[in-house]
Amino acid sequence: DGSQKDLVNLDGTIPVNYRGNIYNIPIGIFILDTHPYNPPICYVKPTNTMQIKQGTNVDANGKVDLPYLRDWRYPQSDLLGLIQILVIVFSEEPPVFSRSAS
């Protein structure tokens, strides 16, 4: 309805093991004022040397879509569970890549 709110935003990286290397994937988690009864909004936040890899769970804007978010149920669903699932999902399909200089 066009209303605006200040949301708590968790900003940071999560450790992802991809092909034997650990990468710190930058993400942002926006926690709604109805938390924990509604899911947070999650984004991948590429640095200026990275590009978003649109895929199964991430759209071209970096917004994350997961069954865990769509089927969010308090108290079974929580932020720690979300982050654990992001680590697993992103280790199979990294959502960002670094552009190499070559």
Partner: peptide, 16 residues
């Protein structure tokens, strides 16, 4: 306070 931070990193893709 000194909060430990990690540097964002991602797999490299070579651009042809």
């Amino acid at each position: 306070t000194n909060v430990p931070t990690t540097t964002p990193s991602a797999p490299v893709v070579t651009t042809e």
